[in-house]
């Protein structure tokens, strides 16, 4: 039996800053909470192909699992957790930007 498809988001790094980005319904966001959650496998594949073709703005697009039990998508793996927050030795990266808003 094929494994059930788990919810995913398309993520990548921005070409100019290298920052982690997530695909939304209309473009890209720096914030995982705004990502478009993909629950259908065929749809996810298409969205990934679409992302991978935007080579002038994004680098290294891939599908990452998310936990959708809350109101916004959350990472399921600690690597994605760090990507969504920033390093743990300094409050740099996303956590810094979020603290500044």
């Amino acid at each position: 039996m094929p494994r059930a498809f788990t919810p995913k988001v398309v993520t990548a790094n921005a070409l100019l800053e290298g920052d982690v980005i997530y695909q939304t319904a209309t473009g890209w966001s720096r914030n995982l909470a705004e990502a478009e959650v993909l629950t259908d496998e065929a749809d996810a594949d298409l969205r990934l192909i679409d992302a991978a073709q935007q080579t002038a703005t994004v680098v290294g697009a891939y599908l990452a699992d998310v936990d959708t039990s809350g109101t916004t998508p959350k990472p399921t793996h600690f690597r994605e957790d760090f990507r969504a927050t920033g390093p743990s030795n300094y409050a740099h990266g996303k956590q810094e930007e979020q603290a500044n808003v």
Binding site: N13, E17, G18, D19, V20, V59, G60, R79, F82, R83, G86, P87, H92, G93, K94
Partner: peptide
């Protein structure tokens, strides 16, 4: 390959 030759990597959060 060109950026790697010049010491530029893309890491988790940034270059």
């Amino acid at each position: 390959p060109l950026r790697l030759m010049n010491g530029l990597y893309l890491q988790l959060h940034a270059y």
